[in-house]
Nucleic acid binder design. Structure first.
Lengths: 255, 255
DNA sequence: AAGTGGTCTAGACCACCTA
DNA sequence: AGGTGGTCTAGACCACTTT
């Protein structure tokens, strides 16, 4: 055995991170079972020979990681696995966009048109106002992965719109590289089946089920700037997530 | 104007949370644009009249919230919106399971059988070993929402299995109420179309696209205990997420 | 050399819970 | 009353980056 009970001051790893690892490890081994109380902070202070602030920090990290729950006056407890804690990330999507070398964006359609009722509603503008409608195909290694529809308010004086007008780039929008003046976004993951146009571009079959990721972006003044969706199927992109305690050291997030 | 530049010591809100709110607010207003540097820690200390530790804590919260990035020796910067930061949660699923009053779980099928190849593979057991196969229908307010398939290793001596053998309950498994001895889980969100059986129970149409949430759970010894999936469609459950800066005060997560 | 983030301490005070 | 988590300080030291 011989699990770290003291902190290695010479380690490149800060003390609080070592404590996090140590506790994670003990939970993973079943030494602290779900629902059980962890040693109190003052006990941990003695055990690890660190100040209370450092112990607190470690515990906060564990709380952030969803592994531990604290309750004032009672103690800190190992949290049982909970499905509601799961979160899915769009890392894969992100990676595609970041892989500049091998990712191409092809502009399939671009037109300025009067907003139909449904679009006007989504963008919170009067029906008939001019909007830019764009459709793009995103491929990686020449394999078509994602089809993108986007409707934007037509106002070239707005910096956001201007940035997006580089139609074949992805803009800072999706990679976060640029200094987009977008403040916030709302995403919605839905189901769809490929229509003929999409099936054609994605080289899928008509009627095949697909993910449809809808997005609405807002500028700094909380105005809706764009609305659209990405469509792709399971082969291209998958959503996976982990819950509970995996390995003992997963890059202590922070505090 | 008139935004809090000093901390209210009498507030129920801790100082670090007030700083978080203040900075969030300024980012939201566009006073700090994406990519811009925030005032240095020492400046913030003076501005808010707090110690460096308190400022650091506030900044760490902002980093956790994905709004700010720090870089040693350089400074702290407002992070541009990034799609990759989005995360989808299963809160809605969670809520259904927690709504005990109105949620019913109906056992549709339960049998002990020899593991087929595919199942054996998923559970990492020899083909032919006995597994429990369960199918359940989860309804809320008598509206069928989710259909659940689950395959479990047959070993009643294992506490996890024993707990799950209360077939019509959801076990602590999904609500986190119990002291399940599960250590970790792996989830996968996929696409499917309803088969006849599922369509029947969910009162949907055959062939309609649906979400399929696959799960694998592991016990404390890293053994795979169960494998299965939830199937449901968009009407029943939706996935939404936010990115960027929403309101100024969203329950400062922690540190 | 000066500025910036990152870590840590020893001790203080508070609010809450269990006796 | 005594234990537990939660917050905060004033100052220290380190590592990194810029000038």
């Amino acid at each position: 055995m011989g699990k770290i009970l003291a902190i290695n001051r010479k380690s490149y790893q800060p003390a609080y991170a070592q404590i996090v690892d140590s506790i994670r490890h003990q939970i993973a081994l079943g030494m602290y079972l779900p629902g059980c109380r962890l040693p109190s902070e003052s006990q941990l202070c003695k055990q690890f020979q660190v100040s209370s602030v450092t112990v607190r920090r470690a515990i906060n990290v564990l709380v952030n990681q969803g592994i531990v729950d604290t309750s004032q006056g009672k103690g800190s407890f190992v949290k049982p696995l909970k499905l509601g804690n799961v979160s899915f990330h769009l890392n894969e999507l992100q990676e595609i966009f970041e892989d500049n070398e091998n990712t191409q964006v092809k502009l399939v359609f671009a037109r300025i048109m009067a907003a139909e009722k449904s679009i006007a509603q989504k963008l919170q503008i009067p029906e008939g106002d001019r909007v830019i409608h764009i459709r793009r195909l995103i491929s990686n290694h020449n394999i078509p992965l994602i089809y993108h529809h986007q409707h934007m308010i037509y106002d070239p004086s707005q910096p956001v719109v201007e940035a997006e007008l580089d139609l074949t780039s992805l803009g800072g929008l999706f990679v976060g590289a640029g200094k987009t003046n977008l403040k916030k976004g709302l995403l919605n993951l839905k189901l769809a089946t490929l229509n003929e146009e999409e099936a054609l571009h994605l080289k899928g079959e008509f009627g095949v089920p697909a993910f449809r990721l809808e997005h609405t972006f807002f500028d700094l003044k909380d105005r809706q700037v764009s609305w659209g969706w990405f469509i792709f199927f399971e082969k291209s992109l998958n959503f996976s997530a982990k819950v509970g305690v995996w390995k003992q050291s997963q890059e202590v997030d922070d505090v």
